[in-house]
Write a protein that binds this DNA or RNA. Structure first.
Lengths: 122, 122
DNA sequence: TCGAGGTGCAACTCTGGAGTTGCAGATGAT
DNA sequence: ATCATCTGCAACTCCAGAGTTGCACCTCGA
């Protein structure tokens, strides 16, 4: 059930959720540095058990941040930039929207103040 | 203790942590839509108590996503795009780095395969 | 065929944090 | 002066999920 995370919103949500855990971020770092790795290998380089790594990889896979392929008796995982990039873009556009809103509200506030000044010129 | 989150890494970590909670994301949406709001007002528009909102606002403030200023007996909060923008940029550059690593590893793999082919032409 | 190394499943513990309620302390309006 | 309203602090409940251990199941090499 690797399933593509259809809606962009869902992708973003799962990516943020996946990235929220520090261990998962370290896992991604190690994996990105090596390009390829199995759960067993990764567990040796991290302060957690193999099973913990397996669960984290499942979460990361569900978020589309990682992909695993079977090679003989082992499963090799690799990093996957697309979902991360999608999330980055979403976040940037959200920040831009906040900026626009703030600018607009500021304008309105200044206009209101100017009107108030005009109304009470005592 | 609103404290600026000096290191960029710390900012990113706290922002991701703050954004991980669905209620906090909704809170930010409502706040961004209104420009200004108090904890009491926000609680009325969300399915949680005022105290819950207060705690969320504290987390968001610590992450630099929100800022609050006292006006008389109430505290008005507003959204703050900078930290979000920083995180978006960080995320985009991370995705780019992953891309570079993957491209490099692919080249190495292809080179190795080509060498293997040359070595066993039986 | 048999052992070693890897994966997968299940049950369990335990802590962080999301949410609640209750009450005390400010502050504005009348 | 008083009441209504908003904030702030504290103690509490509750559960998702991070991590563990144990065991069964494959697959490769000798």
């Amino acid at each position: 059930m690797t399933e593509e995370g259809h809606g962009a919103a869902e992708v973003v949500d799962s990516v943020i959720g996946a990235l929220a855990d520090p261990t998962r971020r370290r896992l991604l770092d190690v994996l990105a540095a090596q390009g390829q790795a199995t759960a067993t290998t990764l567990a040796q380089q991290l302060p957690v058990s193999r099973q913990a790594v397996v669960k984290h990889l499942a979460v990361l896979d569900a978020a589309g941040l990682v992909t695993g392929s079977r090679v003989g008796r082992e499963v090799r995982y690799a990093v996957r930039p697309d979902a991360l990039d999608t999330t980055a873009r979403w976040m940037a556009s959200l920040a831009a929207e906040w900026d626009r809103r703030l600018a607009r509200i500021k304008r309105v506030a200044e206009a209101a103040e100017a009107a108030a000044d005009a109304r009470r010129p005592d």
